[in-house]
């Protein structure tokens, strides 16, 4: 029996957090929530999630910066990162992926798509 996977959600929109929480809990993941970039980085270190759902537009420290720092920190390097973006802009996506994100999801997203992506990232490689 594998230990339950840990997922950290970082988004400042309360309603979106609620829906994401519901979805992740529905997958039997352990969930924590961060409301801004600083909190996200702190929790990444302390909670040591397996995966991070990261919104790019956040106050204090924006998502892309968080991504960069988490990748740069050896303690958190292994975390899988999925960035959530409301912009259709390719630049954000490209930058995110260049900074080390593993996947991206555009809002509004399909729940099924999101869950599938998360699951595939958390699957141990065959």
């Amino acid at each position: 029996m594998t230990t339950p996977r840990k997922v950290l959600i970082a988004d400042d929109e309360p309603n979106i957090v609620t829906s994401l929480e519901f979805l992740m809990k529905g997958c039997d993941f352990e969930v924590r929530v961060a409301r801004d970039g600083e909190e996200a980085m702190r929790l990444a270190q302390d909670f040591q999630p397996d995966l991070l759902l990261l919104d790019v537009m956040m106050p204090v420290c924006d998502g892309l910066e968080v991504c960069r720092r988490i990748r740069g920190n050896p303690a958190t390097r292994g975390i899988r990162i999925v960035i959530l973006t409301a912009h259709g802009r390719e630049t954000d996506v490209a930058r995110g992926l260049a900074l080390g994100a593993d996947a991206y999801i555009t809002k509004p997203f399909s729940n099924k798509e999101l869950v599938a992506k998360v699951r595939s990232l958390l699957q141990p490689a065959p």
């Binding site: 829906s19 537009m57 809002k107 997203f109 399909s110």
Partner: peptide, 25 residues
């Protein structure tokens, strides 16, 4: 344009997500 699009997508995200949840559960 970019800001507006962001602002519009945010509530849409919630609407979509929750209606889907309600539908599937």
């Amino acid at each position: 344009v970019s800001t507006v699009s962001h602002e519009l997508r945010t509530p849409l995200t919630s609407i979509r997500s929750f209606t889907e949840i309600l539908h599937d559960n």
